[in-house]
Amino acid sequence: MDHMLHIELDHAEGAVRRVLGVVEGRGFEIRSISMDAVQAEAASMMLCVHGRGPGRDPDILKRQIARLYGVRRVGPDQLATARSGETRT
């Protein structure tokens, strides 16, 4: 199943690599990706991810991303669902 993730993060050097590394490293494939620099120091990423094989829990992935230093928020939220056009968690 595809899962949408909406991630708000400090727009610091390496921040994007760090998030994508966790997604891939924790066993998820990235199906689509978009990113806006919302303000000068904050960025907003939208990812559609898909677990490689069974047992990959997107809820745990979210917490693994959320614990990264510089990540402000992880979730599906209004923005994520509006952009993806459907609600998937």
Partner: peptide
């Protein structure tokens, strides 16, 4: 080295 160590650090920074 920043990239090489990304999966094995809690955090990292390049002092610019």
């Amino acid at each position: 080295i920043f990239g090489l160590t990304l999966p094995v650090v809690k955090h990292s920074v390049i002092l610019r």
